[in-house]
Design a protein around this nucleic acid. Structure first.
Lengths: 241, 241
DNA sequence: TCAAAAGTGTTCCGAATACACCCATGC
DNA sequence: GCATGGGTGTATTCGGAACACTTTTGA
């Protein structure tokens, strides 16, 4: 890792060190799903700046760490969540987006089954809380903008990739799946047709189990067939809703 | 733009300045289309490191410039091209991707009608040249990896967004359009069906002009209806191939 | 027996597919 | 006239949309 004055930027021959003065951070949007609502995990800041405000799960990147590793580390450090699916979606680099200097931030998002994970606040996080994406508080920094872009990305992504399954418990009913897709896409489906379409894709494994303790006919449970999906993708199949 | 020691990272209480030592760069993939082939504009480096190698159009970002502005500036400074559609697609942040220090780079891509633009090498660029994406040279830095990811992004994008039109001259024949889509997607279409599908979308304006100097029946020329497309999008229409 | 949600079947329509075929131009 | 690519028409198949209907459970 050489840091020297021997290289110059051709633009106006300023010494290179002038250009090595950026901060880099990551911000993770953690999406969950609960009772028909898409939710986001936010943390309450216990450190300056914006102490006391709600924020995305993020922090500065250590110059000795890879970018993608940092995203995972930050998520674990602040919430205890680890080995979570994380995907980069956009990089935000306006000059004045951070009060302490020129900090560029890379946005990541993740999807998880709320029930299976129990975030525990630590590091600069005072507490963590799930918020419905329809009732979001004011956020620190430019995190509202980042979150908005992330939500858009999720809504686009979900139409052509079966990411939705990440948000459901591993065993789910077809109606739960339908409710999730309706929440994500913002419109409703005809029940028989939704069923036919999703089953015809051959991506669900029917389990020999049914719902329990419901005051109506119990629904069959299914799970997502990960293997079959990777197989079908290789053959050119494209998921679509 | 405050830069001070009063803020600390909670991770291990290192002074903030340690964290403000990143370099930030942008790298632009300029796509063009010529005679059935997707092409990429590369520049020959006339500066260290990797002097003499082919590279993407990129440079370090000045700490006083917005990220998106920088991408446009860099493209103009190196090739003279300006007011070009540029879209961010991914950020690359491995530790050792740049030999002079910790430099994170943001990848952009752009699409243009090769014939309408005439890139002129300047700044650290010795020359510029179009390369077919099937015959690419070795590239400087990790630019091969960046380019690969960019090509993937383009191929995905083109299925659900009418970006393809950016690559054609403003007046084109239906078969030219079909050839482009076949090159982008990697499979062929039935001529009558392609025609029916694209015309039924109502996104093309037929011109009262035909091809000239061709040794066969001259084809009608069309242009893309930008206005109608934005209109349709508002109404929920989604382009798809 | 009734409410509530699970689950099935059938009809209709439009879009995608697969072809066969005709048209205009230069040489 | 014939090679070349431009352009049209049609029959068939398939998937999505609409909707009526039956089934199973708890209370």
């Amino acid at each position: 890792m050489k840091k020297s004055n021997t290289y110059y930027i051709t633009e106006n021959d300023q010494p290179l060190d002038e250009y090595l003065s950026f901060g880099l951070s990551v911000d993770c949007i953690v999406f969950g799903y609960h009772k028909g609502e898409i939710r986001v995990l936010l943390v309450e800041r216990d450190a300056a700046p914006f102490k006391g405000d709600w924020a995305l799960i993020g922090d500065l990147v250590n110059p000795q760490s890879d970018l993608s590793d940092s995203a995972n580390h930050v998520l674990e450090r602040l919430t205890g969540l680890k080995d979570i699916f994380l995907e980069q979606f956009f990089t935000f680099g306006s000059i004045r987006r951070h009060p302490v200097g020129r900090v560029v931030t890379v946005g990541y998002y993740s999807l998880l089954k709320s029930k299976d994970y129990h975030p525990i606040a630590s590091s600069w996080a005072k507490s963590t809380k799930w918020f419905s994406i329809n009732e979001l508080p004011e956020l620190a920094f430019d995190h509202s903008e980042i979150l908005k872009k992330g939500i858009e990305t999720l809504k686009t992504k979900v139409r052509y990739h079966p990411v939705g399954f990440e948000l459901l418990p591993s065993k789910f009913t077809l109606l739960e799946l339908q409710d999730l897709y309706e929440a994500l896409l913002g419109y409703t489906f005809d029940k028989p047709n939704f069923r036919k379409k999703i089953l015809s894709m051959d991506l669900l494994i029917p389990l020999n189990e049914v719902q329990e303790n419901v005051s109506h006919r119990p629904a069959k449970l299914f799970k997502f067939d990960e293997q079959r999906y990777t197989q079908l993708r290789k053959e050119g199949f494209s998921f679509e809703f």
